[in-house]
Amino acid sequence: MAAPSPIIDQASGTATPKVAPHTLLQARSSAVEALEDVVYGSVAGIVGKYIEYPFDTVKVRLQSQPSHLPLRYTGPLDCFRQSIKAEGLAGLYRGISAPLAGAALENSSLFYFERLGRELVYGSGVVAKDEPLPLKALFFTGAFSGSFTSLVLTPIELVKCKIQVPSTAQGQTPTPLRPTAVIKDIYRHHGLRGFFHGGVGTLIREGGGGAAWFGSKETVSKMFHNLNAKHATTDEERASILSRPLPIWQQALAGASGGVSYNFLFFPADTIKSRMQTAPIGDSVRGKSFITEGVTLWKQHGLRGMYRGCGITCIRSAPSSAFIFIVFDGLKTYFPLQ
């Protein structure tokens, strides 16, 4: 194709290259998609966070029980009972303001970087741009997305965990903490570096979990698409079925499978991270690495300790992830910004 003719400025006589219309359209399309990822990912994340937050509070409290003391909670139901008795239902939503912002950032980052991962795969020439990505490539884009998102998420999760499980002397009632007070305390004791305490655990959880989250959702979605098109009699009918969105209940199951896979497969990394991030601020956290914390937990409680709180986490992640994908995909499909 011939290059576009330059535009001649009649006053100065200089030539300005004319930008091809398809180039402008492509740039605009990429910008619009990025905006959709940020806006719709944020909305989906906030909806999901309201659904899952009480369960997340229980999960963190179960994970962070001190190793050198008898267990305070016998299980998720006991933790719910004690928490509501001591603080009321509002106590399970303690500190939700920071996680809401975190959920908006997390999900917008996940969807944004996942799309960048797809562009990276297409740009490498491994897959033609007019072909759908194979499942192994989608697992890669999920890992790519989660790894970058962990950098955004670590400081937010650190503040969240410290609000959910405030450190107190034995027998004292915990004092509600505000995000600003926690942020100032962390910075005063550890500086900017302190906000990335537990970052290795977040990276493992988000990198591996992102691959499981997106990969499982796409795997189940593909299975449903193939099942729905199984009885198509012509190629045109099959193509029509495959191009339509899945029924809501199938979208929900696909999203739920992603949430359960994300949490179950990499839950030990999340447990170690939570224990590190709920430790009292100060000298006690210095020298504590992901490895040393993991070895200590393994010696004292074994595999069971690594998965403490996993059941309640998977239960809450199923509806949360289902809603996140339904809201995000629905907004992208029915309310495009272009």
Rank of each mutant, 00 (worst) to 15 (best):
W298V: 00
I312E: 01
Q82M: 09
T23M: 10
S83P: 03
S109R: 06
M1C: 09
A143G: 14
S240I: 00
L35V: 13
W249T: 09
S257Y: 11
Y53D: 10
V43C: 12
Y262R: 01
I312T: 08
V38L: 15
L253N: 08
T296M: 08
D130P: 08
H189L: 04
T16V: 12
F214V: 13
R316G: 09
Q65T: 02
G75P: 04
G209C: 12
H301I: 00
M223T: 07
T271P: 00
A34I: 04
M1K: 09
A318W: 12
L265C: 08
A254Y: 11
L337D: 13
V47W: 06
F224Y: 15
L25R: 14
T219H: 13
T234G: 10
T180V: 14
R178V: 14
R81M: 03
L151W: 14
P6N: 09
E36D: 06
Q170V: 04
E114W: 14
E36V: 01
S12M: 06
G142A: 10
H190T: 03
Y93H: 06
P245K: 10
Y122R: 15
A2V: 05
L265Y: 04
V152I: 15
L151Y: 10
P155N: 07
S261T: 06
S257N: 11
C79R: 02
I204Q: 02
A211P: 07
Q300D: 00
K59W: 00
I204G: 02
A211R: 01
A181W: 07
G309D: 03
S83Y: 02
V39I: 15
F328C: 01
H231V: 09
G198V: 06
L35C: 13
I8T: 13
L203Y: 11
T173Q: 10
G194N: 12
R81S: 09
V38K: 11
W213N: 04
A103M: 11
I186D: 07
G95L: 06
T23Q: 12
D56N: 07
G302L: 02
V182L: 03
P134N: 11
Y53G: 04
R238Q: 10
A104K: 09
E119D: 14
L133P: 08
P6W: 08
I324E: 11
F195G: 03
T271D: 02
P76N: 07
S145P: 05
M306N: 05
E33H: 14
P268E: 02
V295C: 00
